[in-house]
């Protein structure tokens, strides 16, 4: 199993109209500052050797001025010494919202599954998730949401249910149609009342 390169994974998502946050690889601190255009960004170190980035301190969020960006960039370079080869990804900061996870995996016995859960750092703390076999129907998507304890939180009491259902159907379609995907993590996706952004994308083939 190999991790699909970030921009390739993004391209795959785009094919299914799944929105992800503006991103670019940067090769220097000034490169990163230029990408920020004065608004907040995140910097992430991406390496096959580091699977759980935030746990390892490889994710720097809400960097707004040049000084902060440079400091964070240099810190990642220092941490990256043992993680070569690596790249540093700059991303726009998604507008505030709730972090969810949508994932997928293949089981040799039953086939391809889709997962929805409360995301980000809460995934493994609360283990609040729902799983279904792909492809799912709209009804299945609604049941998945309904199964979560956090359903009112992630849907803003139902206000974002419709676009969450749409998103689940798109991801289910992508999982079903791409036989080579063995595991998928869209974690986090920042969901808001009126939209969402996929932030971290991990596709294993």
């Amino acid at each position: 199993m190999a991790l699909l390169e970030y921009f390739e994974a993004r391209k795959l998502l785009e094919k299914y109209n799944i929105k992800s946050i503006g991103s670019k690889y940067v090769s220097s601190a000034s490169d990163a500052v230029k990408f920020s255009k004065g608004s907040g960004i995140a910097l992430k170190l991406i390496s096959d050797k580091a699977l759980h980035k935030s746990k390892a301190g490889l994710v720097k969020l809400n960097l707004s001025d040049a000084k902060e960006i440079s400091f964070a960039y240099n810190d990642l370079v220092r941490k990256g010494k043992n993680l070569r080869p690596y790249k540093i990804l700059a991303q726009e900061m998604a507008p505030g919202g709730i972090e969810i996870i949508i994932g997928g995996r293949v089981d040799p016995q039953f086939g391809r599954f889709i997962l929805l859960g409360l995301g980000g750092i809460y995934v493994e703390v609360f283990k609040d998730f729902a799983l279904r076999l792909c492809p799912i129907t709209q009804q299945d998507a609604l049941h998945m949401i309904d199964q979560l304890k956090s359903r009112n939180v992630i849907t803003y009491n139902g206000k974002s249910t419709k676009h969450l259902v749409d998103l689940l159907l798109k991801v289910s379609k992508m999982i079903s149609e791409n036989g080579s995907i063995t595991e998928l993590d869209l974690n986090p996706i920042i969901i808001r009342e009126n939209g969402y952004d996929a932030v971290d994308i991990r596709v294993l083939k």
């Binding site: 994932g103 493994e124 998730f129």
Partner: peptide, 16 residues
Amino acid sequence: RSHTAALAGNYEEHEA
């Protein structure tokens, strides 16, 4: 290797 794989074990798949 992924969160999804960690959460969705064999029992969870059956239950799903």
